[in-house]
Simulated assay, not measured.
Amino acid sequence: MSDDPLALENQVCFALAVAARNVIALYRPLLEPLGLTHPQYLVMLALWQQSPRSVTSLGHALSLEPATLSPLLKRLEAAGYLARSRSARDERMLDLTLTARGAALRTEALTIPPRVAEALSMPVPELEHLRSALHGVIGATAASS
């Protein structure tokens, strides 16, 4: 690294942007056979963790606004992976529930994390450390905004 604080290679934002773009590109061919885009995969991960859940809860879990989620949810519903319905507790809220097809997709998706780890050629402890550091960045940026 150079001593120049404005050198491109010294910028955290640059390293994060390129790394994110490259890692997401690794997922593309792995998700294609499942009929999912990367953002849709993130939605499915959250629903495999908890279903049913509200759109609000999902938005918090993914750090996404409802307007961003809406088209993703419509496509996943059209694919038969989830169902959207008005909440029995509060009709203003939408609940999301995995369908049998969406729940079954989890079994196929179990192959994705080890394939990504293999493609990155990083030992699992190193990936866990990276994930932990990134969660620290997320926490710090969330707290300052």
Rank of each mutant, 00 (worst) to 15 (best):
A20L: 15
L36Q: 05
A67N: 03
L58P: 01
V43C: 14
A79F: 00
A117V: 10
T111M: 02
Q40V: 08
V12M: 15
A7F: 03
I24P: 05
G102H: 01
A140D: 15
T107A: 06
T97I: 04
L16S: 12
L42M: 12
L34Y: 03
A61Q: 10
L76Q: 01
H38R: 04
E118N: 03
V12K: 15
L130T: 09
P29Y: 08
H129K: 15
L64Q: 13
L76K: 03
E91M: 05
A104D: 11
L8E: 06
P52S: 10
R115T: 00
E32P: 01
L105P: 03
S57V: 10
E108K: 01
L31T: 01
L76A: 02
G136I: 00
I24C: 14
Q40R: 11
A61G: 02
M44V: 08
Y41C: 12
E108F: 01
R131M: 09
N10Q: 13
T99I: 02
L64M: 15
T99F: 04
P39Q: 12
E32V: 04
E32Q: 12
G136H: 07
L127N: 09
E91H: 03
A67I: 01
P29W: 09
L58S: 00
S121T: 06
A19S: 10
A19C: 09
T56L: 10
P39Y: 10
A104G: 09
T97E: 14
G102M: 01
H38K: 04
L30Q: 00
R75F: 05
E91N: 02
A140E: 15
R131H: 13
I24K: 14
V12F: 14
V55D: 01
T99E: 03
V12I: 15
R131Y: 11
T97Q: 15
R92E: 06
A46Y: 08
V116G: 05
A142H: 12
Q11Y: 04
F14R: 12
P123Y: 13
R75V: 09
D3W: 07
K74S: 10
S70Y: 03
H135I: 05
L98N: 03
L130A: 12
S87E: 03
L6R: 10
G136E: 10
L58M: 02
S85G: 06
T56D: 09
T107I: 06
G80L: 03
A78G: 07
Q40N: 10
R131W: 08
R131I: 11
L130D: 04
Q40A: 13
L31P: 01
A117M: 11
G102D: 01
P113S: 07
L127G: 09
I138E: 13
L82H: 02
L62M: 02
L130G: 02
Q49P: 00
A7K: 02
Y81N: 12
S121P: 00
A15L: 11
S85T: 09
R115Y: 00
R75T: 12
K74N: 07
S144N: 04
S54Y: 06
C13R: 15
E126Q: 14
A17C: 13
Q50S: 14
V12Q: 15
M122L: 15
P71I: 01
S144F: 05
A109N: 01
Q49G: 13
Q40L: 10
A104Y: 04
P114A: 06
H135S: 13
S121K: 11
P113F: 02
T56E: 12
K74A: 08
M93R: 05
G136A: 12
Y27H: 11
A119D: 04
H38S: 10
